[in-house]
Nucleic acid binder design. Structure first.
Length: 198
DNA sequence: TGCCCGATTAACT
DNA sequence: GTTAATCGGGCAA
């Protein structure tokens, strides 16, 4: 389990993330993320730039957001609403404190494991939301600060072209109008549909 | 120290 | 459509 995409696509290097978060975020759509062999294709992400009032790093470094100020290609995990975990990929040169929130995945590997962890049978409910992604892939605070190019992570470039749509981010109050949510057009695995879809 | 509220979800009406 | 669950970060006092 988990080797399937390796023959078909390249692994993404840490350098992939050493670019503007607004380039990395759409480029991640269609990439495959596995955690201990379980996961699938990224179909929805959001960009958080350090100059953005909605970003955790906006107010400067704290104990919680320290990883955001570290090197790109590492994972920033935080607890949301005291209940859920949310996972981000740090972008841009070290200290820039920008990151991409992983909001939804199309499950392709370890379906039965994810169903058991999530307690639901419907494929579309396994990873359609940032908290659901972390529960299905069993991401917790102990993953905070880990690099994406080493176990338990495996990250593969997308294969072929992907239709990408953008729109306002979800669940925020500051800078809510900025169109920094990216998704695969027409995907059935989004946490919410995009407004302007053909 | 105390208080408010959040990059959410599921279970309601 | 609404709301409870649940807790740590960040800031006021």
């Amino acid at each position: 389990m988990g080797q399937m995409p390796s023959r078909l696509s390249k692994r993404l290097s840490l350098g992939f993330f050493n670019r503007s978060v607004h380039e990395v975020a759409p480029d991640l759509i269609g990439a495959t993320l596995l955690v201990d062999g379980v996961g699938g294709r990224l179909v929805e992400v959001e960009a958080y730039h350090h100059t953005d009032p909605a970003a955790h790093s906006f107010g400067g470094p704290t104990e919680r957001n320290a990883v955001m100020f570290g090197p790109p290609g590492h994972v920033y995990v935080y607890r949301s609403y005291g209940i859920h975990w949310c996972m981000n990929f740090v972008c841009e040169p070290k200290g820039s404190a920008s990151a991409v929130l992983i909001r939804a995945i199309e499950p392709t590997a370890g379906l039965s494991v994810m169903r058991r962890r999530r307690g639901v049978g419907d494929e579309r409910l396994l990873c359609s939301g940032p908290g659901r992604v972390c529960e299905a892939l069993r991401i917790t605070g102990r993953h905070n600060g880990l690099a994406l190019n080493a176990p338990p992570f495996a990250l593969f470039a997308r294969i072929g072209a992907v239709d990408i749509v953008a729109g306002p981010r979800i669940g925020i109050t500051k800078a809510a109008e900025l169109p920094w949510r990216y998704g695969e057009k027409g995907s059935r695995f989004l946490s919410k549909p995009f407004r302007r879809e053909a």
